[in-house]
Design a protein around this nucleic acid. Sequence first.
DNA 1: TGTATTTAGTTAGCAAAGCTAAGTATATTC
DNA 2: GAATATACTTAGCTTTGCTAACTAAATACA
Lengths: 146, 146
Amino acid sequence: MSAASDLADRLHSTAIHLLRRVRREDAGAGLSAPQLSALSVIVFRDGLTLGELAHAEQVRPPTITRIVAQLEAAGLALRSRRASDKRVTIVKASAKGAKLLEEGRRRRIAVLASEVVRLTRRELADLERAADLLERLVGPRAPHPK
Amino acid sequence: MSAASDLADRLHSTAIHLLRRVRREDAGAGLSAPQLSALSVIVFRDGLTLGELAHAEQVRPPTITRIVAQLEAAGLALRSRRASDKRVTIVKASAKGAKLLEEGRRRRIAVLASEVVRLTRRELADLERAADLLERLVGPRAPHPK
DNA sequence: TGTATTTAGTTAGCAAAGCTAAGTATATTC
DNA sequence: GAATATACTTAGCTTTGCTAACTAAATACA
């Protein structure tokens, strides 16, 4: 139990540090980490609804409303109503958004991957497997009974 | 290069999701993730200075000033001046702080480790190694030339 | 049909995180 | 002993995240 406890602690701590580390670079691209994260999902799953995006990003509706509004204001994403149900909002990435995502990714690489590429092949494989596991651990899944 | 890029992206994304995941539980303990992270360092390295803590946490001085002020207001940490140099502030954990850290840790476990303990021994070993690597990647190290 | 409920998203307003710029107080330098 | 450097603080800004309360559209039901 203590081993799992320690590990969870370390993951928590490294997550905080990782985000602090990339924060400034992301800012250089003009986008915050949450904005980039959302944009990434939008590009990857083009045409999803705000609700789906909120679920994927594990935030509450008001939060995703605002983030998408920012992306839209920056000309990176587009919103439209679904014809068959005018309550739902469809989000798509603009060409500019897709392009900027690629740039943001490159910047992040400069910070993370400049170190990552120095790893041995074996260490890289470890990290890859760990990323799989982490995605399973923290992926969307009805987080809490409200 | 694209492999490293993808990996960096995934780590970035999982870091965001992990923190969102534990956010509510930490809130349940009355502490935010940054507060818990700082408290953890304070408990682990009792008697460090604010500057050292800021460096360990990779934030700017004003940020650490505020976080420690919050911990102090909550009765979890204590500040004192160093006799030999009255500019520097020494931070220590109170008994209450050490106790609460253990509780916060337990709560986080409930979220992360409830899944973590379900992993196979081999997966756990992967994650452990990954945590080592991540700590190396994102640990304190003069991040940017101001 | 026509009210009542549910669903999708928004608006308002709050606390905290992070920052920079500018201030204070103590040490150090010359 | 005046000038500079160091350690931290204060002020003020933007962004994140939340809950609570609202609007508008769809569905239920009677």
